[in-house]
């Protein structure tokens, strides 16, 4: 996906802020998030977007306890 695909809903996760709690992954109704093997500065496995099937519902944004780690672009 590129930045030009502005009409497609999507989610951005800042990996360096993720604490790996997995709440976004569990609560995503479309299962479009997953826990990656990547480990960040805090030593946590970080949540990632698969890159497809996000509807921009925003559930992961509210599920995440961190203020700005997840950004959801709605349609």
């Amino acid at each position: 996906m590129t930045n030009d695909d502005k009409d497609i809903p999507r989610v951005e996760i800042i990996p360096e802020e993720c604490k790996g709690c997995e709440l976004c992954v569990t609560q995503c109704p479309k299962d479009c998030l997953y826990m990656s093997d990547k480990i960040n500065q805090f030593g946590y496995n970080v949540a990632c977007y698969t890159g497809e099937s996000c509807t921009g519902c925003g559930i992961c944004f509210y599920a995440c306890p961190e203020p700005g780690t997840i950004k959801v672009f709605k349609k």
């Binding site: 802020e17 790996g20 709690c21 961190e66 203020p67």
Partner: peptide
Amino acid sequence: TYDQVTHYCPGCGHGRIHKL
């Protein structure tokens, strides 16, 4: 300390309530 995250533990309810 990293200036974009809270001090709360992973999965803490406080963070979610703070956001609301």
